[in-house]
Amino acid sequence: MSAKHHVFVIALALGAAAAQPAAAREQIRIVGSSTVFPFATAVAERFGKATDFKTPIVESTGSGGGLKLFCAGSSDNDPDITNASRRIKPSEVEKCAANGIDEIVEVKIGYDGIVLANSADAPQMSISLRDLWLALAKNVPDGEGKTRPNPYRTWADVNPDLPDVRIEVMGPPPTSGTRDAFVELAMEGGCKTFDWIKAMKKQDKKAYKALCHTIREDGAYVEAGENDNLIVQKLAANPDAFGVFGFSFLDQNSDTIQGSLIGGVAPEFELIADGSYPVSRSLYFYVKKSRVGEVPGIEEYLAEFTSERAWGDDGYLADKGLIPMTPQERAQWARTAAELVPLKLE
């Protein structure tokens, strides 16, 4: 009997939900990058506590997945805001436009550093981008303008100044945005320090990318899954291993692990903020302008996110590991957010 009763209730609910799909939504919906997720949720939580609006729902879908959902339409079932750990691509802007989303407001929120770290019990390493690429690339130059499979077994093989320890780096798998950024900034950055490879970019972009972006698969680079906490724990247990992950994990575990100097620059808060640390990327979120006013609280949420108490030098986002922009940049982007200036890709 009770089962029958349940079916009836569900059927009713189904009918009710299907009958009025356009019922106004009460809270903001946010999707996107898992890197921005900790920051967006922190803002969402404070926003929900400090105002009468409902706490926004933040989904962690990845940058690409988020933009796909974002551009699918502008109904109540589509997200209003998407977070991204990279800039929106022209193809995505076109896709948005094709679905009637013409006006997108872009807001840059700060930077994220990608660090190479090891156990605090081991000596700190200082490595150049070039050596890092040589240590991790699948194919490396053989000195005669050709390439050969990576022969280096220890860091000292790459450069005698580096420790004589077997190369063992744990990092994210190819599905991760952190991996994309690491490959583009660190690997390619080191790769193009070879003049002939840099010249190759113009002639044969595909071969250039294949050479610079491919990480070795012979066991020296271990794909450790998406969970950065796991990498941190493994580093603490194995002093010879290195790990690649976002700055916030280094920041939270600074008593057990230490960041390696890259190009002579340590992955420290101030040094990432002023741009001297070479492996850092910008973080963004995108807002549908047409939804402002339709969904209550979007403007107020933007105001909270772009307030000094959130993204300022001493704000709570900095506490969570976000690297703030300069005050001028912050002022500029806060204005963009307040005036809802639509994005124009040049």
Binding site: F37, A40, A44, E45, K54, I57, V58, E59, S60, T61
Partner: peptide, 11 residues
């Protein structure tokens, strides 16, 4: 994940 239940939900 696909239907949006992997989310930060306070309420």
């Amino acid at each position: 994940l696909m239907i949006g239940m992997v989310a930060f939900i306070v309420d």
